[in-house]
Nucleic acid binder design. Structure first.
Lengths: 412, 412
DNA sequence: CGGCTTACTTCACGGCGTGATTTAACGGCT
DNA sequence: AGCCGTTAAATCACGCCGTGAAGTAAGCCG
């Protein structure tokens, strides 16, 4: 609250650059003319700003479209080729590192399985750094071209003080046994690239919002159904974090006080009724060990009409509908996106049941304005979403390149 | 998304004025010196801005505090006397209209009981206008001195397009049978004063945040327990509205799928377990008609050790704890404020039970950062909160007085 | 080839916040 | 009483911003 983000005239320019850059990134090639109408800037300012961005090499002209009897409008677009993004998905069994260009075309990727030391954060950090070096090396990418490394992790991420280069990032991952792991510090020692870390569910949510089923919505909830259950809340276009970045823990919403025991210790959590782990365990008839195979088997059994499987899935749909009704009542989103590997697997079968249940459980008014849809990006989207973290920073700053003088001149 | 709220240099000044005014309003008399440190503005700018505000009569000097051997600092404060605010609470049985000065001192107030036509919006609008005229008249307040009229209503409020002078405000009040009532239009015909309408729970929430138990928190939920149950979500210092202004419908969160039937038609809503109406009805042994007396009787019976009453309240505490755990998990607030007449009545007795239940139901990490407290303003706060609506607008605009030329010269 | 239309650039202007300098207003000391 | 050191506030030159009007570029059509 010290100045609410910029009082000087130069911040005005930063804001204009950011607005223009964002528009160009999301709404494709645009002429200066259209840019003016879309951003509310005057023609003069658009010329100034785009001129600056062109000079900085952040955008480029791409052809011109003629009209009947006037000077043709030159189209502008973000210079996709010049910059790279790295997205990292820290999963339960492996670390995935991918290199993208600005249009999120995957240039290289690598999967690094976790050893049995998987719960050791130092080990995970080493894998991330190894994967990072590998994708950069294979593509011959210079560090200066990389806007940053985004990492999606399981657990709650405290961002630390801003401006400290990610050093203060701490991860609390109950499910993987991480207790206040200083991931920022661990990674910072191995790379000079800008670091961004957030919860994996939140990165996936952002990916669905930017490029998937959530496109265009300003208020949405991306529900993640996997082994456990989570959610990413988008309020007014931005990920909602809450006081300590742990908002959106939907899985432990109480849908049945005094009901089934959940792995979190409490009773009646949504996760205990609709999480893949809970479903597979309750079904019992699945080969142990492989949860995905187990859930697929459960689904197949239900398709075959096996009553126990059908009952289990019908119940899951009802509880999911109730949980979604809660989200609708509390957050009043325009859209609910169901994602996560289990959600995408079960979605086609459960969706009618979910909608029916939600119709009954949610209040009429907000429900009428909410759309329940399935995610379109698949579970790989955690990586894409992670890569949006540095991208978001890049766009917000108006294309200000992070200061990385230490990359070039600090070899000693 | 046309310009994200101001690209020109004058918007900069508007922002500075707003920052300074806000600081002065909330953090009492302040010297220019302190103002500079607190707002991040340079000394020169502070001089400029405060000079402008002084000239406009929005702030005033109030004494000076000397130091050891230097020029004493002149203290500044908002000119409380010059402006008035009107708050209106549209309740289920009456309309309350109150006139405040800027320090929220009540200068006059009137209660207008609803006739049996209470569900007729036209009747309510007439009462509001009559009450408004009355308080203005009794205090001899000139219309120019009134920053605006804030109205808290039951139901969902659609704000309509901005800049239309409140004409587009529409209220959907299921419980009072209001279906898309054009309250803005109804009131606009009877007064030229700026109009602000919001849900009563949200106005009460804002009052608790600004002046009550929520002071200082940036992320909070004000839970309202009355006949029904609602909530006001504060995200990053602002009321969270969602896509269609209906966010925060906590009362119809599902805490027991397949459980008790709620008056909304669904089963297992929180409201069906902890709302005053439900509690009194379930207890049965209360005099019918007066819900407040009924709840008081239930409470007295529980204090006397009557098992049925004790059991009912213990169960309510458990469900409230579960509901609050949901809020903690989903919103990750710093504070949960329990308000509403029933909440304040039961609070002292239920709070230990609520906390115990919430401890068990919420996730450890977010719960450790959340404080559960009782509201401090009482139910009258709906009126105060309603009055904060024009105040908020006044502060946000940097003290720009609404254009009301039509008040003075448009008599024909 | 000249006129017309449309897209873009250039530029004078008013306005902003900063930071250095100046002025105001006090207490203490001689 | 007069001066000095100290702190608060006002003033001002400076660089920068977006606007809007005027000017220029770049195609069409006849």
């Amino acid at each position: 609250m010290t100045g609410r983000g910029g009082n000087t005239v130069r911040d005005l320019r930063r804001g204009s650059r950011a607005t223009v850059l964002r528009r160009l990134y999301f709404d494709g090639p645009l002429s200066r003319q259209e840019l003016g109408a879309l951003t509310g800037l005057s023609a003069g300012s658009v010329s100034n700003v785009t001129g600056e961005l062109l000079a900085d090499g952040l955008i480029e002209e791409c052809g011109s479209v003629g009209s009947d009897g006037g000077r043709p409008r030159t189209m502008l677009r973000v210079a996709a080729g010049r910059f790279r993004l790295v997205g990292v998905d820290v999963g339960e069994t492996q670390v995935r590192v991918a290199l993208f260009d600005l249009t999120r075309t995957e240039l290289a990727a690598g999967d690094l399985p976790l050893s049995d030391r998987g719960r050791d954060a130092g080990h995970v950090a080493e894998l991330i750094l190894a994967g990072l070096a590998d994708v950069l090396d294979r593509t011959g990418t210079a560090p200066e071209a990389v806007l940053g490394v985004g990492v999606g992790v399981p657990g709650i991420v405290e961002q630390g003080a801003p401006g400290t280069d990610g050093l203060g990032i701490v991860v609390h991952g109950q499910t993987v046994g991480w207790d206040a792991v200083p991931l920022g510090r661990l990674l910072r020692t191995g790379t000079g690239l800008p670091l961004f870390v957030d919860n994996g569910a939140k990165t996936l949510g952002q990916a669905e919002m930017w490029f998937g089923a959530g496109r265009g919505a300003r208020h949405a909830v991306v529900a993640l159904v996997g082994s456990g259950v989570g959610a990413c809340v988008i309020a007014d276009g931005a990920r909602y974090r809450g006081a300590t970045s742990s908002a959106g823990e939907w899985g432990h919403t109480k849908v049945h006080v005094g009901g089934r025991r959940c792995r979190c210790g409490a009773r009646g959590c949504l996760e205990a009724y609709v999480g893949a782990e809970a479903l597979v365990e309750r079904w019992g008839a699945a080969p142990p060990g492989d949860e995905k195979a187990g859930l697929a088997a459960l689904l197949a059994a239900a398709e075959a009409g096996e009553p126990a499987a059908v009952g289990l899935l019908d119940e899951a749909a009802e509880y999911l509908g109730a949980g979604i009704a809660d989200l609708v009542n509390l957050f009043n989103p325009e859209r609910i996106v169901i994602g996560g590997w289990a959600g995408l697997l079960l979605g086609p079968r459960l969706l009618p049941g979910i909608r029916a249940a939600a119709t009954g459980y949610a209040l009429r008014f907000p429900y009428e304005h909410a759309l329940i849809v399935l995610g379109t990006l698949g579970p790989e989207a955690v990586t894409t979403g992670a890569a949006t973290l540095p991208l978001s920073d890049f766009l917000d700053s108006g294309g200000q390149l992070p200061d990385r003088s230490h990359l070039s001149d600090a070899s000693a």
